[in-house]
C-alpha cells in the first residue's frame, strides 16, 4: 500500500509525490499542497480525525479521507533536506 499523508505520525515530514484521486479540491493545491513540497503533520484531532498539516508554510486542517489521497515519501529523521 502506498504511503500517504494519513500515515504520517505527529511531527513527521514527507515530500508530496502525487495525488491518487483526480478530484481533490483545487483549494488544497492553491494552499500550496503540490507535488514536490514538504508536508508536516502538526497535530491530530482527539478522535484521530481531522488532521492538521503544515505544507509550504500553510497550516490547514483536512479530513483523513482526503489525506489518504495524497501520496508521499516520508522523510526519515536522519535525512537532511
Amino acid at each position: 500500500m502506498e504511503t500517504t499523508v494519513a500515515h504520517l505520525k505527529r511531527g513527521q515530514k514527507g515530500i508530496i509525490k502525487e495525488f491518487t484521486e483526480n478530484l481533490l479540491p483545487i483549494k488544497l493545491l492553491e494552499l500550496g499542497c503540490l507535488p514536490g513540497n514538504v508536508i508536516e503533520l502538526v497535530q491530530v484531532a482527539p478522535l484521530n480525525d481531522p488532521i492538521y498539516i503544515n505544507v509550504n508554510g500553510s497550516h490547514i486542517a483536512i479530513r483523513r479521507e482526503m489525506a489518504l489521497h495524497i501520496a508521499l515519501d516520508i522523510i526519515e529523521d536522519n535525512m537532511v533536506i
Binding site: K27, L28, P50, Y52, S58, H59, A61, I62, R63
Partner: peptide, 10 residues
C-alpha cells in the same frame, strides 16, 4: 460539493 479544508491561521 465542498471539501473540508480549513485554514488554521496564526
Amino acid at each position: 460539493k465542498s471539501f473540508f479544508v480549513v485554514e488554521m491561521p496564526n
